[in-house]
Write a protein that binds this DNA or RNA. Structure first.
Length: 218
DNA sequence: CAGAGGATCGGCT
DNA sequence: GCCGATCCTCTGG
């Protein structure tokens, strides 16, 4: 039973262990297989350079959109919107949803195969003031700044301009590793109508920055 | 070329 | 929990 005042146990970033300086992840460091990539990204860092500032968050929630997946944008083949999903792994796929929000994915698999890992939430570590400014809403705690895929993109200033970029080398957006090893849980994906039963969502256990109903992240 | 609907969010009941 | 906002993209005729 959890204490009523705190929604979740301490997040992975609250470990007091010294850890190595963060190191940019190159393409060769990332699993190319979609589910392995989605799981691997939990605990890694998202590093954004924008307007002369550095924003860093720890990824705490992802979803896999695999080959032959009716819920995937790539299910019916390549289109103008989803072509970044067909890029070699470690490219960004950024798209607009509901006319209101952006979503960030990391492409997976070989060139020509449409699959990706959606980044659904991050725990802000560096640049929280800038993230709060970008969210444009009052009263948000740090842990709410990048909770949910649309909120994450808003906080990090991610939009169509970053669609298709190579996360291996682009100066504007990178993945990094600081040696943190979180405990990873899994569940069904959030917000889907098709293939809603597949267990393809991954999250950092104990993180207060994950989205979705609490029952999905025990 | 019209129409439906979506990997969301936030406000309201 | 429910619902509307908002704007493309994709589909079918």
């Amino acid at each position: 039973v959890r204490p009523p005042t705190s929604r979740r146990a301490p997040a992975p970033s609250s470990n007091s262990e010294p850890r190595p300086r963060r190191r940019r992840l190159r393409r060769r460091d990332l699993p190319h297989e979609t589910v392995a990539l989605a799981r691997f990204l939990i605990g890694k860092l998202l590093v954004r350079q924008i307007d002369g500032e550095t924003l860093v968050g720890r990824i705490v929630e992802t979803e896999a959109y695999v080959v032959d997946d009716p819920a995937s944008h790539a299910y019916r083949g390549m289109t103008a919107r989803n072509k970044s999903m067909f890029a070699l792994h470690a490219h960004a796929y950024v798209y607009r949803i509901y006319g209101t929000s952006w979503c960030l994915n990391v492409s997976s698999e070989a060139a020509g195969i449409g699959a990706a890992a959606l980044i659904r939430a991050a725990e802000p570590l560096v640049g929280t003031a800038a993230m709060r400014r970008r969210r444009g809403r009052d009263g948000l705690s740090d842990l709410e700044l990048a909770r949910g895929p649309g909120n994450l993109c808003r906080a990090f200033g991610i939009d169509a301009e970053l669609d298709g970029i190579d996360l291996d080398a682009d100066p504007r957006l990178a993945l990094a590793d600081d040696g943190t090893v979180p405990e990873v849980g899994s569940s069904v994906r959030i917000g889907l109508t098709r293939a809603a039963d597949r267990e393809l969502r991954f999250y950092a256990r104990g993180s207060a920055a994950v989205s979705g109903r609490r029952a999905l992240s025990p």
